Simulated scan of single mutants.
Amino acid sequence: METPVPHDPDTFLAACTIEPAVSELRPDYRAALLVVEGLDPASDAGSERAEVMLVEAEQHARGLLADSPVEELAHIAAWREAYRAFGAKPQRTRNSLEALTRRVDDGLPRINPLTDIYNAVSVRHQVPIGGEDLDAYVGAARLVRATGDEPFATVVSGEPAVEHPAPGEVVWCDDDGVTCRRWNWRQGPRTALSTGTTRAFFILDALGPMSDDALTAAVDELASALGSLGEQVTVSRRVLAAGVTR
């Protein structure tokens, strides 16, 4: 196993890629990528803002669910279709947005300001978001269709374990293995955010029902809110799309 090394944000983001096979599966897919530096793990400064955002997200989602079942919400339905396209069963493995939206009746989880903020943005803007520790990455992030040989370090029944994705499964990975299975279903502990994270990497996953303007609005709110988590917070961003970089 290689030792993670510090990443320059611009260099890291420039090296992130979407494999053509993924773009062929969903030509409408876009990934908004953010690197956030200067986070203060000891600060509780963002707690009040995170709580307000969670309450607003819960209220927004409850309004959506009053008019439609969760599986018929436009972006969630699109992700269920995308899962079926690579062989996953969305009723058994729910994308992260659907999993969070289904929790709003009982209240979204309260974990820590960093996680709470991106969960709130995910539900409020109806977009799957993954948050990870940049300093745990080995090389750049790549979205690929798996061969089935890639290692996914995880925990099973409280014990470390290594799993492998199904051939053709869409996964995020770095040079050391899979970081998130089934596009946006389950992240691995190796790159997970922690109470010691000072540099975070976020992925916002958009399909056709979500416009570029709506994706930008989600990115802008996430970047603004994360700015409350340290006096020296800086945000770098990039959008990847099928055959297009911007």
Rank of each mutant, 00 (worst) to 15 (best):
D175I: 07
V127D: 02
Y118P: 00
T154S: 01
D176L: 06
A153E: 15
Q126L: 10
P167V: 04
L100F: 11
T147R: 14
I129D: 03
G130H: 13
A166V: 09
L143G: 08
G168S: 07
G130K: 13
V162P: 11
V123E: 10
T147C: 02
P160M: 08
R92L: 15
G158L: 04
T93W: 09
S157H: 11
E159V: 13
G139D: 04
L134H: 02
G168P: 07
A161Q: 02
A136G: 01
R94Q: 07
G148Y: 06
V144S: 05
D105G: 13
V123G: 09
A146N: 09
R142Q: 12
L97T: 06
V127S: 08
D135E: 14
L108N: 00
D174A: 12
A99T: 11
P128E: 09
H125L: 12
G168I: 02
V121T: 09
D149K: 14
R102N: 13
G131N: 08
T154G: 00
V156T: 13
Q126W: 02
H164W: 04
G158F: 07
R124T: 07
V155N: 13
D175V: 03
S122D: 05
D133N: 15
Y137G: 00
V127I: 15
V155W: 10
N112F: 13
L108A: 01
P109W: 07
V138R: 13
R124M: 05
D106M: 03
D105I: 03
A166N: 05
